[in-house]
Design a protein around this nucleic acid. Structure first.
Length: 710
RNA sequence: GCGCCCUUAGCUCAGUUGGUAGAGCAACCCAUUUACACUGGGAAGGUCAGGAGUUCGAGUCUCUUAGGGCGCACCA
């Protein structure tokens, strides 16, 4: 017996050398798998953001995907798992901005676009290297030869091609809209990048002037200097007589021309039954304005300050302006009521700034516009609905299908332009009144490229096929697309999963993946969100791997975690699963010690109980019940195989006839090797290490051996 | 406001098509120079949140009440 079994199992000594063994074998690459691997099975890794390091959530994702891939590889599939990273435009840029500001006291404009991007690229590269190392440490059997980055050359070509194609289809357009402006990040953001915070504010009921006939209410008095109408319900008997009239008003030094309009969007039961319409600073009001051809007057600028047309509040920040308008209303006896009000305020996910709705010229993807492809006419929204309704794409756990439909129904045009520097520059050039949209730069001089970059989710939306070589018609694309499974966190169902379905349907006329498997969040033992700002609650994957091994870390993230559920993780749980690796190690020590000289006869039968178990867990694997399969194998290995079968074997091996002894030895070897095959996807390192010493003829690496049953 | 999920042993959670409740951890008793103290054996622990219904039979299906979590929308 190999002397290594005399000591307890030490993952640190083992894992790096085993990973190297796998890398050298080439088996992570489907092209290098042996002949028997035919049918393709593919997963693209949700690319981690190059904003720093991986957390436990990433570790869970890697564990789940690696289990799926290893399982399918052993079952004879031609498995491809593609690694990559995401440039994460706003997230990365704001992170680097913070660092530069802290270290040098400079802003990005002090450095200039070129120099700033150089700095971001350096940061992104370092971050990338860290992430790649972490992915390897987890034991991920992922094909490094196909690694991709959302901002590399091939992906840039895909992005430009996608933009150009969708522009030509009429699905990408440039327009003036009320967008979500982040005054801190100095950029637009999409509806999904908003987080709502409940805050106590006040709601003020007032009249514009003494002569004005209708009272209105608002939580934002400062925007009222930009009002151009008051909307009432068309059938409201109180106000009906005023509809169509226009009032000229001096409001806090601003000259307002307020038209009374009748609009069905107004609820006569709510508040005063009348709405002051501010077309420039509210998307709802903008829609009302559109229906009545009302003028739009912008009164707040990109820095959340009042503009020059705002009378007494000119130049003030919005909150200061609010106070000043309120005192003006009081002084002029126009304020009728002031009440406490609980409101959901929109803030930017990345910077935390309060969103300022502003009218701006931006690029959008039209989700409600019909387009024709292959004789079918439909909208992108319909395309997204149909892909899931038709069961072409299955979302697991299935309650998320409802959540998905709910989101699609409320979907508005997607704003894809961002006023930041880090990302894919919009492939549009302007010259006088001419516009050029193209994959190649325009020829001729004086063309000026659009300053903006694309929303990071635009490039992520192409991920399943841009990683496979699109727009070129590659063999990979033909072989591995649509991908088999998309495994990701439920928190990015809308951001990413939905956008991939949109992009793939629109550009390739197919689906990006057949199954979506959504995992939950990894939380602290108390159920809080893990946060780097609270190191005492934050468990780091690399720490866990260093202390207990990657196998233990993987198991702790799988067992007890039902599909789509959040997982409460404590260090003790990881520690507990280290004991399991060691148990397996000791089982092996005992068996090798007592079967010295034997070579496994592959025809030896395993027990009926184990056969039944294997059938059962194979069904679990096929149905993504990894947590059950892992737990059942754990239980069988420890409490059946070790506690009962091995204990009982001791008597036979001591007192039985030669024939009984031989039979018992073969049985032990067969059971152990079978369990190693079944356990390998879950705990690849320790099983591969033990496999080296199994007395088997024509032995291959365990990673490409057959799964425990056929 | 609309929608989704959760409530099962002290704790964390399983329980796949309905067939009289399971695991891990903790606690308790016992054993042990044992392949393994990263051990083994044993015992204890639950009117499955409350109520009603469907059924021969409900943790599981339906309705309902309460508590908790989450998503989306509104936000005059």
């Amino acid at each position: 017996m190999n002397e290594k079994f005399l000591k307890p199992y030490n993952p640190i000594d083992t894992e790096d050398s085993i990973y190297k063994l796998w890398l050298d074998s080439g088996y992570f690459n489907p092209d290098k798998l042996p002949e028997r691997h035919k049918e393709s099975y593919s997963i693209v890794l949700p690319p981690p953001n190059v904003t720093g390091t991986l957390h436990m959530g990433h570790a869970a994702m890697l564990a789940i995907e690696d289990i799926l891939i290893r399982y399918k590889r052993m079952r004879g599939y031609k498995t491809l798992w593609i690694p990559g990273t995401d440039h994460a435009a706003i997230a990365t840029q704001s992170k680097v901005e913070k660092i530069i500001e802290k270290q040098e006291g400079k802003k990005r404009h002090d450095l200039g676009r070129e120099e700033f991007l150089k700095r971001v690229n350096i940061f992104a590269q370092e971050s990338h290297d860290t992430i790649v190392n972490q992915i390897k440490k987890m034991g991920a059997s992922i094909d490094w030869s196909r690694e991709a980055f959302t901002l590399d050359e091939k992906r840039s070509l895909a992005v430009k091609t996608a933009f150009k194609t969708m522009y030509d289809m009429g699905l990408i357009y440039r327009g003036h809209r009320i967008i979500n402006w982040d005054p801190k990040g100095q950029t637009t953001i999409s509806d999904d990048e908003i987080v709502y915070e409940e805050r106590k504010t006040k709601i003020y009921t007032f009249k514009y002037s003494k002569d004005f006939p209708i009272s209105i209410a608002t939580t934002r008095p400062e925007t009222k200097v930009g009002d151009t109408a008051v909307a009432v319900h068309p059938e409201d008997i109180r106000y009906k007589k005023f509809i169509g009239k226009t009032f000229e008003i001096d409001f806090a030094g601003a000259k307002l021309s307020i038209q009374i309009v009748g609009d069905m969007a107004v609820d006569p039961e709510y508040g005063t039954g009348a709405v002051g319409v501010t077309p420039a600073h509210s998307s709802v009001d903008s829609e009302i304005a559109g229906r009545h051809s009302l003028p739009t007057i912008q009164v707040i600028n990109e820095f959340a300050k009042m503009m020059s047309n705002t009378g007494i509040v000119e130049g003030l920040k919005v909150l200061e302006a609010r106070e000043k308008i309120v005192s003006w209303l009081k002084e002029n006896n126009l304020l009728e009521k002031e009440e406490e009000y609980l409101q959901n305020i929109s803030t930017a996910e990345r910077t935390g700034a309060v969103i300022e709705p502003l009218p701006k010229l931006q690029w959008f993807i039209a989700v409600n516009k019909k387009f024709k492809k292959n004789g079918k006419e439909r909208t992108l929204k319909e395309l997204m609905l149909e892909a899931v309704q038709s069961k072409e794409i299955k979302i697991l756990p299935d309650q998320f299908e409802k959540v998905y439909f709910n989101w699609i129904t409320n979907l508005r045009d997607w704003c894809i332009s961002r006023q930041i520097w880090y990302g894919h520059r919009i492939p549009v050039w302007y010259k006088n009144d001419e516009i050029y949209v193209g994959v190649e730069d325009p020829s001729g001089s004086d063309w000026k490229q659009d300053e903006d970059t694309l929303d990071t989710w635009f490039s992520s939306g192409l991920w399943t096929f841009s990683t496979l070589g699109w727009p070129e018609e590659t063999i990979d694309l033909a072989t591995f697309h649509p991908t088999s499974v998309l495994e990701t966190g439920y928190d990015i169902l809308f951001f990413w999963v939905a956008r991939m379905i949109l992009m793939t349907g629109c550009l390739l006329d197919t689906i990006p993946f057949k199954t979506v498997y959504l995992h939950g969040l990894v939380r602290t033992a108390k159920g809080e969100k893990m946060s780097k700002s609270k190191p005492e609650t934050n468990i780091d994957p690399l720490d866990m791997i260093a202390k207990y091994g990657a196998d233990a870390t993987r198991l702790s993230l799988i067992v007890g975690n039902g599909m789509g559920n959040d997982l409460k993780l404590s260090e003790d749980k990881v520690k507990g699963y280290k004991h399991f690796s060691n148990k397996l190690w000791n089982i092996t020590r005992y068996i090798l010690n007592s079967t010295e000289g034997e070579i496994l006869d592959e025809n030896t039968e395993i027990s009926k109980e184990l056969k039944d178990l294997l059938v059962d867990i194979t069904s679990d694997m096929e149905n993504y019940r990894l947590y059950l399969a892992a737990e059942k194998l754990y239980h069988y290995t420890w409490h059946e195989f070790a506690d009962k079968i091995i204990e009982n074997s001791k008597k036979v091996l001591a007192e039985g006839s030669d024939e009984e002894k031989k039979k018992q030895k073969q049985f032990l070897l067969k059971t152990l090797t079978t369990l190693l095959r079944a356990l390998h996807p879950f705990i690849p390192y320790v099983t591969e290490e033990i496999w080296k010493d199994m007395p088997i003829k024509d032995k291959k690496l365990l990673i490409i051996e057959e799964w425990a049953i056929k």
